[in-house]
Amino acid sequence: MDEEKWLADEFEANRAHLKAAAYRMLGSRSEADDAVQEAWLRLNRTDATGVCNLGGWLTTVVARICLDMLRARKTRREEPLELPVHGGITDPAKDPEREAAFADSVGLALLVVLQTLAPAERVAFVLHDMFDLPFDEIAAIIGRSSVATRQLASRARRRVQGTDETPDVDFERKRMIAEAFLAASRRGDLEALVAVLAPDVVFRPDATAAQFGRGGELRGAHEVAELFKGRAQTAVTALVDGELGYIVRVAGEIRVVVALTIADGKILAIDAFADPDHLARVDYSVLSH
């Protein structure tokens, strides 16, 4: 069997799974078809001989395509929503009992709730809660730490289950922590920085952001506090993929976006993005004071 025939057969074997994942993320059968078709085109442009798990590779590609589509949809203020039709969608586990549960879960009510989530939040929830992908794999797809990805999926789950009863109170508390960190950073107040950081906080910059700082990933409250001491002079508080964070402008242009993971009154993770392609896709908005 030649490689082209093998790739076509493998893709067809994964098509139902890919369409199911795309539909749950996008809420649109036509957009799901577009995402799957784009994955097929990318597969044909890729040397797949070194791909050990083609199904996993395709799922990652479709998820990234869907994330880009969701972010583009947010900028256009468009929220396509189609009534679910379950006949053409099957569960990748091919378990009849679980398929029945999936059919019930992908109803109009769920799709309506999912469309209120930020793009990365929605992708994290769908891939983990519906398709059992590990947080480490999802983190690589959405460009966040595993801790941040877990928090995104958890918040999405609470909203879907209708148990996120005090979002305004929780948001305001987190905003106070984010702004306290920002103020302490500007003042160079090491003690105040440490006070709002979890002992095992992780700072993870992408490759471009690392060039602006002092290297790559850092762990520990004192290490991260030292990094941020006296900095953040041009940063402003913002929502980044639905979570609190900052944007940093240099010469009037946004050069860095920072996403925070906050829980139990502490900052658990700080993710910094400066890659221009990533900045073009991330969903953020500045918070007014």
Score class of each variant (00 low, 15 high):
Ala39His: 03
Arg64Ile: 00
Thr149His: 01
Arg15His: 09
Ala48Met: 11
Glu10Tyr: 00
Ser30Gly: 11
Ile89Ser: 05
Leu58Glu: 07
Glu99Thr: 05
Ala8Ser: 12
Val36Trp: 01
Asp104Leu: 10
Val112Pro: 01
Ile65Pro: 04
Arg150Met: 10
Phe11Glu: 04
Ala13Met: 11
Phe11Thr: 02
Leu111Thr: 03
Ala13Asn: 06
Val126Gln: 10
Glu38Lys: 12
Asp104Trp: 08
Val147Ala: 10
Ile65Phe: 07
Arg73Met: 08
Gly143Ser: 00
Gly56Tyr: 13
Ala72Phe: 09
Ala32Glu: 00
Ala93Met: 07
Val51Ile: 14
Glu10Cys: 12
Ser30Pro: 05
Trp40Met: 11
Arg122Pro: 04
Phe135Thr: 11
Ala48Trp: 05
Gln37Thr: 13
Glu97Ser: 07
Asp95Tyr: 06
Ala16Asn: 13
Met130Asn: 07
Ile142Glu: 02
Asp34Arg: 14
Leu7Met: 15
Gln115Ala: 15
Asp33Cys: 08
Asp9Phe: 00
Val85Ile: 11
Val51Leu: 10
Phe135Ala: 13
Arg64Val: 00
Ser146Tyr: 00
Arg73Tyr: 05
Arg24Leu: 12
Thr75Cys: 11
Phe102Lys: 04
Lys74Val: 08
Thr49Ser: 15
Asp68Gln: 15
Phe131Arg: 00
Ala140Val: 10
Glu12Gly: 04
Asn14His: 08
Arg150Glu: 08
